[in-house]
Nucleic acid binder design. Structure first.
Lengths: 115, 115
DNA sequence: CCTCGCTATTAAGCGTCGCTAGCTACCGGT
DNA sequence: ACCGGTAGCTAGCGACGCTTAATAGCGAGG
């Protein structure tokens, strides 16, 4: 929807997908559907594929081609050790940023309750 | 520092600066120093100025030129009504995203405590 | 005097990211 | 034969933050 969310997803979407893959392996179409179910309905379809290509090239995931009963073969992505390191780094950065912003949010609300 | 933080700041830095201006008016150099004090030490100097130009062009802030005792005149930015609307929208988007990501964080931690 | 350093702002060019739009391809049902 | 759902790929775009360099005013020190 809003481009506000679009800009905010930059830098976080990769972490989101890695977090999903940390729970279980999945393929692009599946991840997109999963995100839509979870309320990330504003994420464009093609974005996930491009992101998966990127994380594969960086060596954060392993790929396995699996034939599908209904449609072209799926590319199933599994997070690997390097990917888990990256994910941990993502959570560290996220936590730091979220805490700082939350502090701002509180002081902001003290002045502007009508937010 | 890390480009991880750099990417995450995309979309959030504007909200951060608007939140600062919601507390009190300020000029670029001052904001940069303030951010450095508050732990946002990884934000580049020039970035804030470019951002301020942007929010001014979008009409989120009013500007007043004030002579400085030591150096060239300062451009003091004040948030206006439109800017407060934008800030409120920012907090809405931020809250939604932060909640979704936090949910992922919990389920992620259940599997991978050793992050 | 002239340079150094601090204050303060501006601008050009770069890389990364998510989005848009369109395409390929496989399969089953009508 | 056609269409819709499944599944993936890609080129080009705009937005954002970073890097780097330039400009400019002012005070202190050589």
């Amino acid at each position: 929807m809003g481009n506000q969310m679009t800009e905010m997803l930059k830098g976080t979407l990769e972490g989101i997908v890695l977090a999903i893959l940390a729970r279980r392996s999945a393929y692009g179409y599946e991840i997109t559907a999963w995100l839509r179910d979870r309320g990330f309905s504003d994420i464009a379809e093609g974005t996930i594929y491009a992101l998966l290509v990127r994380v594969e090239q960086r060596g954060f995931v392993d790929v396995e081609k699996v034939p599908s009963e209904k449609g072209p073969p799926r590319k199933v992505y599994s997070i690997n050790a390097k990917g888990r390191d990256q994910l941990a780094e993502f959570w560290r950065t996220w936590t730091v940023l979220a805490e700082r912003i939350e502090q701002l949010h509180h002081t902001d609300n003290q002045q502007d309750q009508g937010a």
